[in-house]
């Protein structure tokens, strides 16, 4: 399908641009253990919403492990485990719709930012996200003692009425860049790992520089097994999914 033209009054994106940071997820390696989900929530101060709010579909995990059924009931085949987080689209549908410019594209990191202190909670971006990865703080969720002790000081604790999403652990990117700059060098491949990639026991999540053709992630994204989610929408996602095995559906 031809790429439909996305209104480009905000995202400063050019055709064929690879972006700066990228991720490759090997779905043949993923066992669906949810370690990435837990690690992400811990790293990014994501609140637990509790049973009642979950019932309303207000879960706040920035990362979910998706699995779908294929086919009619007796002949059901499972799709592989698929961790879905913000795809950090090069041409993000969430960006042009924000009335207060709270979700903007970083020209430096080539990431999709969410500026919490600007957000007024219209939830327009979440409704426009084809990957459904944005989550909204419907309330100031209770964090009983001693849970506040494990807050990550590098990440904002969001308030009620603020939209949030995966940031590719931008606080870790900044830390590594700061470290590299103080040593007068560039960030080397493998120096930055977001919480999900660090926690993955199967090493299924690989993170790194996309503009470096020698990095592990850019080699994997050019692999023949790599696909991008909803590529036909022309959002130019930065996360590549590698798939080619049988997913246990033998025969």
């Amino acid at each position: 399908m031809a790429n439909p033209k996305i209104p480009e009054f905000k995202a400063d994106w050019k055709e064929g641009e690879e972006g700066r940071w990228g991720m490759a997820i090997d779905m043949d390696l993923c066992t669906g253990c949810q370690a990435c989900v837990a690690a992400c929530s811990m790293e990014n101060n994501v609140p637990f919403v509790g049973e009642e709010m979950s019932g309303y579909g207000r879960q706040m995990a920035w990362l979910r492990v998706e699995r779908l059924w294929e086919g009619e009931y007796p002949e059901v085949k499972m799709t592989p485990f698929q961790p879905v987080m913000c795809q950090q689209c090069g041409s993000a549908p969430c960006e042009p719709v924000c009335p207060v410019f709270a979700t903007v594209h970083s020209q430096v990191e080539q990431l999709n930012l969410q500026v919490y202190n600007r957000c007024v909670g219209t939830r327009y971006c979440a409704n426009n996200c084809p990957y459904v990865v944005r989550v909204f703080n419907w309330a100031d969720y209770d964090r009983p003692e001693p849970l506040p002790n494990q807050f990550n000081p590098d990440v904002t604790v969001r308030r009620r009425g603020v939209m949030e999403k995966c940031t590719f652990c931008i606080q870790r990117i900044h830390k590594a860049e700061d470290q590299a700059k103080s040593e007068g060098r560039e960030v080397v491949d493998g120096e930055v790992a977001p919480a999900c990639a660090q926690a993955c026991p199967a090493d299924a999540i690989v993170f790194g520089r996309m503009d470096d053709p020698e990095s592990r992630v850019s080699k994997l994204s050019k692999d023949g097994r790599a696909v991008h989610l909803l590529e036909e929408l022309g959002t130019n996602p930065r996360v590549a999914y590698l798939k080619g095995g049988s997913n246990g559906n033998l025969g």
Partner: peptide, 12 residues
Amino acid sequence: RIKLIDCGTCHY
């Protein structure tokens, strides 16, 4: 300048 006035430099 692009780096120093980028939202993501301070807000995340």
